[in-house]
């Protein structure tokens, strides 16, 4: 798909419409709701990265929480050790670079495996990152984590401003723009020759190898890109939460990333984003609604896998297709 037809496609109109609808939303929602939405969007960026591996490369990572944590900790560390550079224009590239480096090492160990081996190895490596964050107490703040101050943005300092005002004001617009860029870039990647190569490896590894594709190399590239998106999501998330702890790197959170991706439906490009936003609301309202939220979450997850394997977006698409079919049948 070249650029011109991409712009003319109906999808581009939908994207534009969503973007335009999202922009003024901060004025209608309460600051609290804006913060929730923002948390969902940052998780969505991460899940988008995760899905590059799952949907387009056929690799299930159970360790993406650690990459998310790397992005978030980069922000915290920058404040702790380089407070002079604590502006968002530096923090974002910095977290991209750091997550790329970590994802590079992480991926190098893991991409030699596939299937369940890959899942277990990613989990093991993510636990290494978790223990490092926990153990190197003096450097990382240990289990207490690091407090995240408000960064300067385009030269404006926001010290003294309440966090929710920053989040429901300038940061919201910034986040929406980054989000748009991420979606467009990821769209580009999956439709590029690189994306098609990944999919051909996913579909048939042997054949891909036969036609001269260096399979492991490409998997490693995919892991890098995926790690960058996930880390970027973590960095953006850290400002919203205001505090990062090693729990982000624990395998439970990695499992939640898988959960939200499948909740939204991983076979559809936008599925993970929908899933991440839904998941954020689901988790919050479940935890404040019942003491047994864990049980409820587990049951929802089991039912989801059993009854709605294509996720919410897949389910809706199915329903749409069925309705259409029955309509055409009526006509004929």
């Amino acid at each position: 798909m070249d650029v011109k037809s991409a712009i003319r496609s109906p999808k581009a109109f939908v994207y534009l419409a969503v973007f335009v609808l999202l922009l003024p939303l901060a004025n209608f929602l309460s600051p609290y709701q804006v913060m929730l939405l923002e948390a969902g969007i940052t998780l969505g960026i991460s899940a988008l990265g995760f899905n590059l591996l799952l949907r387009y490369t056929g690799l299930l990572s159970f360790g993406h929480g650690a990459l998310f944590a790397v992005g978030a900790y980069t922000v915290g560390m920058m404040y702790k050790y380089f407070p002079a550079l604590y502006s968002i224009e530096i923090l974002i590239p910095a977290s991209i670079i750091v997550s790329m480096i970590v994802a590079g090492i992480f991926g190098y160990i893991c991409v030699r495996h596939t299937f369940i081996f890959f899942a277990i190895i990613t989990m093991a490596v993510s636990m290494v990152i978790f223990t490092l964050l926990l153990k190197f107490y003096h450097f990382t703040g240990g289990s207490d984590g690091i407090h995240i101050e408000l960064p300067t943005m385009l030269g404006t300092s926001y010290t003294g401003i309440k966090r929710f005002e920053f989040l429901s004001g300038p940061y919201y617009y910034f986040l929406i723009c980054i989000f748009a860029v991420c979606v467009i870039v990821m769209q580009g990647i999956v439709n590029s020759p690189f994306g098609k190569t990944l999919q051909s490896i996913r579909d048939n590894e042997v054949r891909a190898e036969m036609v001269g594709i260096r399979v492991k190399r490409y998997r490693w590239y995919a892991f890098l890109v995926s790690g960058i998106f996930t880390g970027l999501g973590g960095a953006l998330y850290s400002f919203i939460n205001g505090h990062v702890t090693p729990e982000l790197a624990e395998w439970i959170f990695s499992g939640e990333i898988v959960f939200m991706t499948l909740l939204g439906g991983f076979m559809i490009f936008e599925g993970p984003i929908i899933g991440a936003i839904l998941f954020t609301y689901l988790q919050l309202y479940l935890t404040s609604w019942t003491e047994y939220w864990q049980f409820a979450m587990g049951v929802i997850l089991i039912l989801l896998v059993l009854l709605l394997p294509q996720g919410i977006s897949g389910g809706v698409a199915d329903l749409y297709r069925k309705l259409k079919k029955s309509k055409t049948r009526e006509i004929s």
């Binding site: 600051p31 609290y32 505090h243 935890t287 939220w293």
Partner: peptide, 16 residues
């Protein structure tokens, strides 16, 4: 449930 969800809960308690 972790520090993360506690931050979210405290926000809900105060703001919502």
């Amino acid at each position: 449930g972790g520090t993360d969800s506690q931050v979210k809960l405290a926000r809900k308690l105060i703001m919502d």
